[in-house]
Design a protein around this nucleic acid. Structure first.
Lengths: 180, 180
DNA sequence: CAAGTGTGTGAGTGCACACTTACAAACAAG
DNA sequence: CTTGTTTGTAAGTGTGCACTCACACACTTG
């Protein structure tokens, strides 16, 4: 049944985002994502063209979920000004990455951009998100840039575990970042 | 001669930063850094306690160089206001990472923060840089936060190769970032 | 029922790589 | 010269992992 194979791919992709997020591309064996998806390693290799194909597909799924969340967040904005819409998008993003999988996957993907296919997937993901943010919020270039700069700051805060650091420098970096 | 061993360690560390920066911790064999340093793999293992010890030491060297460059940059500031000093520091940082090794190494280190020793090294590095920036520039928390947020944005720009992308969304993200 | 097609796996295979060990040359001290 | 220490390497060893293949069950079609 063709639909079953397609359903499997979705399951595997969700598992892949979670598992790759922890230890990254090179450090996670495809056995691990197969186990997380509840199927055999051999079948994962049939569903995707090698480990790299799996990772690239997972990157697509990751950015899909991010784009959807931001889009939904924009709908809940309090007003029509760029500031209000960006703020609502930021809140939606913060909510989405509460479980950390999507954030950590992005970090892992950025770390293996020496592989051209991954670099292209990352560009495609940010292209999609950035163009939507700009057009939907009617924000200026500078506002969009700021939006992503503080998004990237979240990556540092989470990977370095700065929320747990009580020292002043860490408090300065984490100040105002919504529920990490 | 003890001094020679110490000199070797420095050589190896410089090589390690460059080599790890390209492909990351898990994807680069220590043979590669040994070759870059011009010595045998076995001797690298004698100079450092395993691959992880080498990587952590390289992280220390990386943040040392960053801190030194920012410190030197601050000396060249045009004035005494926080804005002028932060700007001079930003310029110094941008100059330093022109060769990309230090920037990419930071990305790679952030990607393997699931290893506790690496996470601690990253925190120590940012602790050193952030405390210096804040005390030297007498900047507010918000200014320091902004400084690092746009620094992290540079990581995205470089890893995704956004300087090469002519599309509007990419131009918005790269606008005003000093000579990438 | 026979033949074909899609879904799924267990049991390999081969290679890359982290780390060790045994050994050698240089230099120093007595 | 002998003994000891430091610098350095060549040649393993064992393991983990990407990827393959032969095979099996299910389900459809004629």
């Amino acid at each position: 049944m063709r639909s079953t194979a397609e359903a499997r791919r979705v399951t595997v992709l969700n598992a892949a985002v979670s598992v790759f997020a922890r230890a990254g591309f090179h450090a996670t064996p495809v056995t691990a994502v197969a186990a997380a998806a509840g199927i055999s390693e051999a079948y994962v290799f049939r569903l995707f063209s090698g480990k790299l194909g799996l990772f690239v597909a997972a990157a697509g799924a990751c950015f899909d979920r991010i784009a959807d969340a931001i889009e939904a967040g924009a709908e809940r904005a309090g007003g029509d000004s760029p500031e209000e819409i960006l703020d609502a998008m930021g809140d939606a993003y913060a909510e989405l990455i509460a479980d950390r999988d999507l954030l950590l996957f992005q970090v892992q993907a950025q770390a293996v951009t020496d592989i051209p296919e991954v670099a292209e997937a990352v560009r495609a993901g940010y292209r999609r998100v950035a163009t939507f943010v700009q057009s939907r919020a009617q924000a200026s270039d500078a506002q969009v840039q700021q939006f992503f700069a503080y998004g990237q700051l979240c990556h540092l805060i989470v990977t370095a575990g700065l929320e747990q650091v009580p020292e002043p420098w860490a408090r300065a970096l984490t100040a105002g970042i919504r529920h990490p």
